[in-house]
């Protein structure tokens, strides 16, 4: 199935070569979870600080157990803040 992956700040370096902007479509396994996508993209786990599935926060402890569906959007950031 295909999902939309969005990688921001320093994580953007891990987007496939030639990606324009911060997001791309990604073919993933039918049983994909945020944890498997992180592994598939070779992202350093501790840099995946903020993980949002369709805008909803995924706890670190829930990343391996949260199912992703076809067409979902998975967005990730390293530790960031603002105000």
């Amino acid at each position: 199935m295909k999902i939309r992956v969005k990688l921001y700040a320093s994580l953007a370096e891990h987007l496939p070569a030639g990606t324009k902007g911060n997001e791309t479509d990604l073919e993933v396994a039918a049983d994909a979870t945020p944890a498997t996508v992180i592994a598939q993209l070779g992202l350093p786990e501790k840099m995946c600080h903020l993980v949002l599935l369709n805008g909803v926060y995924v706890e670190p402890s829930a990343r391996a157990a949260t199912s992703i569906r076809d067409g979902d959007a998975l967005a990730m950031w390293p530790p960031v803040a603002g105000g």
Partner: peptide, 25 residues
């Protein structure tokens, strides 16, 4: 030593929130 104040804020500034807050709706 803190990843936010030691790395995130100096590198990206507060503006990094634009996509975060948009994504969270």
């Amino acid at each position: 030593d803190n990843a936010v104040t030691g790395q995130g804020l100096p590198a990206y500034g507060t503006q990094v929130l634009m996509n975060v807050i948009n994504e969270t709706g």
